[in-house]
């Protein structure tokens, strides 16, 4: 058991020596892998962020009913009665035009513009929650309410969120495809790196085979090399992404203040970070295993 550990320890040490012996080549390889990985991982993160934002809306869909600008109080109140009687409406809330103007002034930072308006351009509006949140029910409710007198416009607030959700699902598929392609690229990079190493260490391999090294012993430092190179690439990708998130959050301070709940850009979760380190390591190991197996067989056959 101690022999086993010391052999593996030595293999790791040997592997690190190999990295150190060709520092430029190793660093460039790791950078290539890191940058390649940061693409799908970064896109995944962007989509994840947008999704959680769109979910906030999509799960609590509201219907906004805008009254005509010149509708008077009784006409607005009559719509409230209809809403109260409608079996499909769960709850509703009046946002009066004064109230809406007040909110706009406070939340958008457009106070000066709002103040300079000669008169309030906003209509009275109801924010309605439907009992049934399925898209069909919401659309039916919208069509019904649009027929009511003095109602100017009915809008499904969640519609854009739902559309975004659909687009994001497609984008996710594309990122998954990109991820698969880059995984193959990582395999190819590792395969080639290890191929060159096996060829330059051909004499050494032949000698240690002659003095009784098993194939497992010969393979081990190459496998460690592949795995460590993959992990290092994953680490580079993680740094690129974390740096990117920091830059976004730092520079968009103004914007994120305004859209506080929406665009506080989240970084990679712990489990995602661990995957980002381990999966490239595993892929590197596999690439190295394929390469070293093939090239050892070639050496043995000569």
């Amino acid at each position: 058991m101690t022999a086993w550990f010391s052999q593996h320890g030595r293999s790791v040490a040997q592997t690190l020596q190999r990295f150190a012996r060709t520092p430029l080549g190793s660093v460039l390889n790791i950078l290539v892998i890191g940058i390649a990985l940061s693409l799908p991982a970064g896109l995944y993160l962007v989509i994840d962020n947008l999704k959680s934002a769109s979910h906030q809306f999509a799960t609590d869909p509201q219907v906004s009913v805008f009254m005509a600008l010149d509708a008077d109080h009784t006409e607005v109140a009559r719509v409230a009665v209809r809403l109260k009687q409608n079996p499909r409406v769960q709850s509703f809330k009046l946002v009066s035009r004064d109230q809406a103007l007040q909110e706009l002034r406070q939340s958008s930072g457009l106070g000066d513009v709002v103040d300079s308006l000669p008169r309030n351009p906003l209509p009275d509006a109801y924010v309605v929650n439907s009992k049934d949140n399925s898209p069909q029910a919401l659309e039916a409710l919208r069509d019904e309410m649009a027929q009511w007198p003095r109602v100017a416009h009915v809008q499904l607030d969640a519609a854009w969120a739902r559309r975004l959700d659909a687009v994001l699902r497609l984008a996710q598929l594309i990122v998954a495809g990109l991820g698969v392609l880059l995984a193959v690229a990582l395999l190819a990079i590792t395969f080639n790196t290890i191929r060159l190493q096996v060829l330059t260490r051909r004499d050494e391999i032949e000698v240690i085979k002659l003095i009784g090294a098993t194939d497992a012993y010969i393979r081990r430092p190459f496998l460690y090399y592949g795995a460590l190179q993959g992990c290092a690439g994953g680490l580079v990708a993680w740094l690129i992404i974390s740096g990117g998130v920091w830059l976004v959050n730092h520079n968009l301070g103004e914007l994120s203040h305004v859209y506080a709940s929406l665009f506080a850009f989240k970084s990679l979760a712990l489990t995602d970070s661990i995957f980002l380190l381990l999966i490239p390591g595993l892929l590197g190991w596999i690439g190295a295993r394929l390469s070293v197996g093939r090239h050892l067989a070639l050496i043995a056959s000569k």
């Binding site: 101690t2 086993w4 000698v207 009784g212």
Partner: peptide
């Protein structure tokens, strides 16, 4: 095995060359 062309590893020093068989066999 003693070879006519020695088959030494030139990127390792004398000690490391001789240690090779023991390393392979897992000696402490």
């Amino acid at each position: 095995l003693v070879f006519q062309d020695h088959k030494l590893l030139f990127d390792r020093n004398v000690f490391e060359n001789v240690a090779l068989p023991l390393q392979i066999m897992g000696y402490a």
